[in-house]
Design a protein around this nucleic acid. Structure first.
Lengths: 146, 146
DNA sequence: CAGCCAAATGATACATAGTCTCATTTTCAG
DNA sequence: CTGAAAATGAGACTATGTATCATTTGGCTG
């Protein structure tokens, strides 16, 4: 379902270019986030990280997430229940669909959202500088298996 | 800016009709939520509640919010930073704009959002059962004062 | 390649947000 | 008015996230 792939190498390059040091912890965490088909919470990422590097500290994971978010590589999403899960940012602006059955995230074309925002700005007079849209429901696969 | 008003009496009636008991704590909290122009967090509501009823318990506020949410009177929104603020639900479906300067919430017509969702369903094949959209930026008033 | 310094890390204390429990109080039907 | 059920308040507890600081690490310098 994800369709789009992220290359961990690119993330490490981006870190390096931004003046940050490239460490083994970071390689590990980047690997985890970029490979996951599901939005991960910080705690989930920490758990997975300790499978291969048991001494990984909790704070490191949070710091890393913050860093990746600032670099625009990771994007915070607001799940149906929880509020802090993360998915890799795609080069194109996209909006997210989350399947309530299998939990997977699917990226959708955001052009319609851009149009909607434009429309709302015109109608209300407010200036919109940021937006959060997430759609929830049953994905194509889960509809068939139901 | 809010434009729409909520009548506390209606909320109490709704509680009563649903078989819940009507208490003074609830009256107080309903008053607080229905009067506020700003989305309130549970902690904020608790703080305000204790101004007039110092002994109000924290758990009571959380329980009350849960109840009002289940009755569809209160709606959880995801602020720009925080993730759990609440606004009164309006009879019509509406989407929210939050001003990043003054913090106020404005309700916008949600028809365009319905159309967008329909469009996304058709394009992706997923079935959308719920959505969260919030717009952030500068409201009309704050743009003028800038 | 050895040494140095700043960045990154891990451990842990702390902070914040929210839940659970239970004894006491309140509501309201009879 | 009275009793049962619901609601409440106090505080212990959990989960999630942040701050501090001594130690380790990466990678540049000579």
């Amino acid at each position: 379902m994800p369709g789009k792939k992220i290359n961990p190498e690119d993330w490490l390059t981006a870190l390096d270019k931004s003046g940050f040091r490239v460490t083994t912890v970071q390689e590990n965490l980047i690997e985890i986030f970029s490979r996951s088909e599901y939005p991960l919470s910080a705690e989930q990422a920490w758990e997975i990280a300790r499978e291969t590097r048991p001494k990984t500290g909790r704070a490191t994971v949070y710091r890393m997430i913050e860093k990746l978010e600032k670099l625009g590589l990771l994007r915070r999403i607001h799940g149906y229940q929880g509020c802090s899960h993360f998915v890799p940012t795609l080069p194109e602006l996209m909006m997210l669909f989350i399947c309530l059955d299998c939990g997977r995230a699917d990226y959708l074309d955001s052009q319609p959202l851009d149009d909607l925002i434009q429309q709302s700005e015109d109608a209300s007079g407010h200036r919109v500088t940021d937006s959060r849209l997430q759609l929830f429901g049953a994905c194509v696969d889960c509809q068939q298996n139901a």
